[in-house]
């Protein structure tokens, strides 16, 4: 972890945070992230969260699932061991297709949902055993925290940022140093 200085501004209310974030960004201060107990609508465009590409990933997983299902059923039923079951002979794929639709659909959904979930966990870096890094336990309850990194804002000094924040509606301001190793970190 490279050395960085993080300033947290805490808020009691999501709407106040939203207003202040807008103000900071318009003054050129870059807000790197926000910790909140629930999604704040309208925040993403302000702090520059890019539109997620997960939808495209889901579509790709769906296509893979559909292809696999159809290929599999073609192989099992038509190619490898065609049989005449109950007057529904498996000699031609197209004439058997209506009976393959349900499984093809289910398998498509299966692959899409699980592929998407896995990609989502990877993108977030959330897995069992991962340590959470929210600055205060109450940010999963009713506290909202804005994260501002000094290194992201070369045009501002630490004191400038702090004075900007103290003039804002933030209820509390905290500073944190991240160093080369975890052990030398202090509040």
């Amino acid at each position: 972890m490279k050395k960085e200085t993080i300033i947290y501004a805490f808020y009691n209310d999501d709407d106040v945070l939203l207003k202040d974030a807008q103000a900071f960004v318009s003054q050129g201060l870059w807000v790197s992230d926000v910790f909140s107990p629930f999604p704040i609508h309208g925040l993403d465009p302000i702090i520059g969260v890019k539109e997620s590409k997960l939808g495209y990933a889901a579509f790709a997983y769906g296509l893979i699932g559909l292809t696999l299902a159809l290929l599999g059923m073609w192989y099992f039923m038509i190619h490898d061991w065609p049989m005449n079951i109950g007057g529904k002979p498996n000699f031609e794929f197209v004439y058997n297709l209506p009976a393959f639709v349900p499984v093809a659909f289910e398998f498509t959904v299966l692959c899409t949902a699980h592929g998407l979930a896995f990609t989502y966990f990877c993108a977030n870096g959330t897995f069992p055993g991962v340590k959470a890094d929210n600055p205060d336990p109450r940010t999963t309850d009713d506290l909202f925290a804005m994260e501002i990194k000094l290194e992201d804002n070369p045009n501002f000094s630490l004191d400038q940022i702090k004075s900007m924040l103290s003039k804002s509606n933030a209820s509390e301001i905290r500073e944190k140093q991240n160093c080369e190793t975890d052990t030398c970190c202090n509040k």
């Binding site: 969260v49 998407l116 055993g129």
Partner: peptide
């Protein structure tokens, strides 16, 4: 902690969370 998968409520994560919820609902 184990069950929460290290969730810390970042804006980026919430953004993906809502996206995933919507797609899964659609599916």
């Amino acid at each position: 902690s184990l069950l929460a998968f290290g969730w810390s409520g970042r804006a980026k994560h919430w953004h993906r969370f809502e996206m995933v919820s919507l797609i899964l609902a659609g599916l």
